Simulated assay, not measured.
Amino acid sequence: MKDLLDYLVRQLVDHPDSVAVEQFDEEDGTVVLELSVGDDDYGRVIGKGGRTANALRTVVKAAAVKEQCRVLVDIVD
């Protein structure tokens, strides 16, 4: 799921080298993916009204269902 999110975001942004995804495992089995991008690319990742961010979360959650786990995607500054 981390690789999927990384791939999708790198296709969206102008500076793919500045994309970083960190994975943390919670005690309850939830996987937290923290996404950070370059300062100029936050608008592209979030999208108008948060539509792009919601679409990214939906795709990653669909992949998580296939692996039978719960995932949260956080976009951090």
Rank of each mutant, 00 (worst) to 15 (best):
M1L: 14
K2I: 07
L5E: 09
D6Y: 12
D6F: 11
Y7I: 08
Y7K: 12
V9T: 10
V9Q: 05
R10L: 08
Q11Y: 00
L12Y: 12
L12N: 05
V13D: 09
D14G: 06
H15N: 13
H15E: 14
P16D: 09
D17T: 05
V19M: 03
V19G: 05
A20Y: 00
E22R: 14
Q23T: 15
F24Q: 14
D25E: 15
D25W: 01
D25T: 07
E26M: 13
E27D: 15
D28F: 04
D28W: 04
G29F: 05
T30Q: 12
V32T: 14
V32I: 14
V32S: 07
L33K: 07
L35R: 06
S36W: 00
S36N: 09
D40N: 02
D41G: 04
R44N: 01
V45T: 07
V45R: 03
I46T: 06
I46C: 03
G47Q: 06
K48D: 09
G49C: 12
G49V: 10
G50A: 08
R51V: 08
R51A: 15
R51E: 15
A53M: 07
T58V: 05
V59H: 06
V60L: 06
K61G: 00
K61R: 15
A62C: 01
A63I: 01
A64G: 10
A64E: 03
V65S: 12
E67G: 07
C69G: 02
R70Q: 11
L72R: 15
